[in-house]
Design a binder for these strands. Structure first.
Lengths: 166, 166
DNA sequence: ACGGTTATGGCAAATGATTTGCAATTGTGA
DNA sequence: TCACAATTGCAAATCATTTGCCATAACCGT
């Protein structure tokens, strides 16, 4: 695991560092955006997350990450996530719930999930995504560009299956 | 209009008739539910749809299908769709928009879609779904039951690609 | 066909989630 | 440090979904 040696990176957005706090900070600055305490905290929360987070969870985790202080306002988190989506740094994940959940987009991160529709448990799926390779084919066949995908499996986890049976 | 011919009133949801209006009517009745003009119109709209429909679209199409009369109330469409979801006759499709879209669930229907994130065009994908066969594997590996999936591709269609380039 | 029972539908109001306006604050480059 | 513009918190607006209530209409048995 390479340690982050943050001091002098000069990368462009395209060949940016992998998703480290410093890499992201640099990316934002290169767009004329500012790196604030709120944003740092939010990014740290997202970097640490093992599953997609809702806005409230981001708030909560952000304050934990930055160890203390006021949690960022709901609107602030909202605007930050809109921004990250715009920049393709984060994306919304469909968990079949009313509110939105987000995760960072990184080729090294898994993008597909297994969701228990009863208790809500979310499990990121390991291994190579079976669909990623289709993006290119679909793009060609339908004349699309910038094709991405969203794949989620829904079902009942072991516990909820037995509960349901009784 | 042929009278409905109930030869297998013992049928479970699983071995029900293919999705025809009569088949669905029968299914509803077997659950103690009633087949009304509204419901008939909504079901016809869904049966005819070539892509997932939003609640307003269902309203609009329903009145067209039943050729005239008042469109069903929004709440009525909403409750009907909740009911159809409950019965696994319909499902919500994630089109990356704020509001919900629905389509009937039928093994002969395609379930995966290609969505242009700019103009909103929705294209159902033909051919065998590459993921369906994984449901069983995932169920086994993670101890889940009743596993289904939701797969959508997002991108820019040809027209929107060229627009974006300019 | 009739009438009683009960699911359904329309209306409007409640809820929930997301989005925006604006003034005060704070990061950044010069 | 200063000036400028981006950012933030707060509250209010918007948008989508969901529910309560009572009048209506579907269905069953007669």
């Amino acid at each position: 695991m390479p340690r982050s040696h943050s001091h002098h990176s000069h990368s462009h957005a395209e060949d940016a560092e992998p998703f480290t706090l410093d890499g992201l900070a640099e990316l934002l600055r290169s767009k004329g955006l500012r790196m604030t305490g709120n944003r740092r905290a939010i990014l740290q929360a997202l970097l640490k997350a093992k599953k997609p987070l809702g806005l409230e969870e981001i708030q909560t985790e952000a304050v934990r990450q930055s160890k203390g202080g006021e949690p960022p306002d709901f609107a602030t988190v909202f605007r930050m996530m809109a921004l990250l989506e715009e920049l393709k740094i984060a994306r919304k994940v469909n968990l079949g719930r009313a509110s939105s959940y987000f995760e960072l987009v990184d080729s090294r991160h898994h993008r597909d999930h297994l969701v228990c529709t009863d208790c809500g448990t979310v499990t990121p799926l390991e291994g190579n995504c079976p669909v990623e390779s289709l993006e290119r084919q679909i793009a060609r066949k339908h004349g699309y560009t910038q094709v991405t995908h969203s794949l989620e499996f829904f079902g009942l986890c072991g516990d909820c299956s037995t509960d349901a049976a009784s």
